[in-house]
Simulated assay, not measured.
Amino acid sequence: MKEHNLIYLSVSIILIALVDSVGALLGFWSIEGAERNQILVCESLILFALLLNSWLIYRKTNANTQFPAHKQIAFLSFSSLFLCLLGDITNFNLPETFYRYESVIKHDYLADSIYFFLPGYTLLLLAGIRAIELKSKDKRFIRYPVIAGCVVGMISMVMMHLPNTGWFITISTGIYAMLIGVVGFIGLAFILSCGGLKASKGELLVGSGFILAAVADAIIGNFWIYGHQGEGFYPQVRYINWVVYITSQCMVIHLPHLLVINSKYSHDKKQQDYNPMA
């Protein structure tokens, strides 16, 4: 598949997710209504298209590079998305059960999805760190985001946490809040390692994808899990989170593809500099 087709597929997925969310927010359909099964089928197809695009990017990366680091990042990126999609399925709450662990958090099934999102975003974090290492030898681009992300995640957890929340929900969401905070700051560090505002459009979009991933989970924590005294601002917050999350994933899956393109461009430029007659 040609490079621009992979981008078009991501844009199409984002637009479909946007229609899905906006339509629900405007009341044309609802996840709590009779259309629930149809919406879940539609969203499952969106996730499948996203996974397919990531797989195509993984294959194209391996076919167009000889650098082990690029192949490693492609594997980490695809594996990350695969695990996260399992978390998405958990968040669908197919059995429609609530208050499973305690009487404070209604949508506590979201904590179960952390079993998939935690390793999934850990792999994405490793892919981002590896990409930064290819751009810069300055360890500050990694050290400071990790510290900042953990601190912001802890502060966010303290601010949204509700009294009498059980230990399982508290510990799992607390650890996850720090991880996703680091993911967001790694996205910013990636952009800075690429030159900041001088970074290419692709680098800005991929880095922004990491940041949007943190925003999506901040929405879940503050408004879906702990919001409204534990009842959550549901289903409206679900619709908003859906389009932000899908957009973030559509951006970050292009990381390995972007690195291959940049590497090829850098190589061609060096060849031109070496041979002025080229």
Score class of each variant (00 low, 15 high):
P145D: 08
A216E: 07
K60E: 10
G232A: 08
F223V: 10
L162S: 13
Q38Y: 12
F82P: 00
M157C: 09
A111R: 01
A131E: 00
P145I: 10
D108G: 07
S208D: 03
S193H: 09
M251W: 02
C250F: 01
I246T: 14
R140F: 04
R140C: 02
D112I: 03
C42A: 15
A34H: 09
F141I: 05
K2Y: 08
F210D: 00
N37F: 11
Y8W: 11
G184D: 05
Y99A: 02
I114G: 01
S103H: 11
S77C: 06
V158D: 12
S156Q: 10
S10N: 11
V41F: 14
G221D: 14
L47M: 14
R238F: 13
L40N: 14
L18S: 14
L81E: 01
I16K: 08
K269F: 13
G209R: 01
F210S: 01
G232C: 12
N222E: 11
I180T: 14
M178E: 13
W242T: 11
M178Q: 14
T90I: 12
M178R: 04
C194H: 04
V152C: 12
H107V: 01
R238T: 11
S113M: 07
H267W: 03
G87C: 07
L9I: 12
H257F: 10
I46P: 06
C194D: 03
H107C: 05
K139W: 02
V237F: 13
Y274H: 09
L18W: 07
L255V: 01
G207D: 01
D108R: 06
